[in-house]
Design a protein around this nucleic acid. Structure first.
Lengths: 141, 141
DNA sequence: ACACAATGATACAATTAGTACAATATAAAA
DNA sequence: TTTTATATTGTACTAATTGTATCATTGTGT
């Protein structure tokens, strides 16, 4: 009954593989509470149709998440968020995702001709701005 | 989905290399609005067939445009006009682009559930790795 | 003849899509 | 209740589409 809508936003020009984007976004939605243990994810076909992609691409993302013990896929039954997401594996996957994001950002910045100092400083700047924002108002619900 | 026709006119007697002609014409079409950020260019093979040339020549043109950050090529996906198109990097534009990149990166990282410290540290990590690599490495064209 | 740049040929890797199948659930039939 | 049929779900393998890498060939100038 608890079929999540699982609103995912794909960027087909980002250079990030679609299955990676799905993995990252499911992971992040679990991290920030939009998804909870026990929740059923859309079927590979349903999500594929909604995103206008092939269901194998969804299946690939689900398989990665399954191997990371984030979700539990069962043939003929469906796909669910793991009841007890092993912290160390979610942690691992999250760090990997972060590393991927970071590397990508850095590469693009470098190609833009930015110096490392510039990049580093910009990140510090923006991070500081973020923390100010969250201090003045809770976004969580 | 919106595959551009990308009408290119080659002059095989101009003495100008074909790949250079492709580079120039893509650039000018981007400049005068015939091409816009996000547009997908024809595949190397499709354009090659249309122009009756080898697809490696197209690939070479695309690679040059990619290095110039005009377009973004992704193996297995396709080739697109870069979303953030300011290679005309005045200092100001470059900083704005960097800010945009950084903000996007940070937002995604936060959505992943990463802490600010984690994000900051990951960027430092990766930047350090990058500088090691470039010590032995390549200079821009 | 030689050097070098441009182009072409071939093999490869990454991503996504297509097809057939197996496991499970659900409902109908006995 | 048990059995059977059908639909639903994920899986496995394969194909198609994309750009990449490397080397061979061609052509031009010295």
């Amino acid at each position: 009954m608890t079929e999540k809508r699982l609103t995912l936003l794909l960027d087909f020009h980002s250079g990030l593989p679609i299955y990676t984007q799905i993995v990252n976004q499911v992971q992040s939605q679990l991290a920030n509470g939009m998804l909870k243990p026990g929740d059923q994810l859309p079927t590979v076909r349903a999500l594929a149709e909604e995103l206008r992609i092939n269901f194998n691409t969804v299946a690939r993302a689900y398989r990665i998440l399954d191997e990371a013990r984030i979700i539990s896929t069962q043939q003929g039954r469906g796909t669910y968020i793991t009841e007890i997401p092993p912290p160390e594996t979610t942690e691992k996957l999250r760090r990997e995702s972060l590393a991927e994001l970071a590397q990508r950002f850095i590469n693009e910045a470098l190609r833009l001709g930015c110096s490392e100092r510039e990049i580093s400083r910009m990140v510090r700047d923006r991070l500081g701005r973020e923390s100010n924002r969250s201090e003045s108002g809770q976004v969580k619900k």
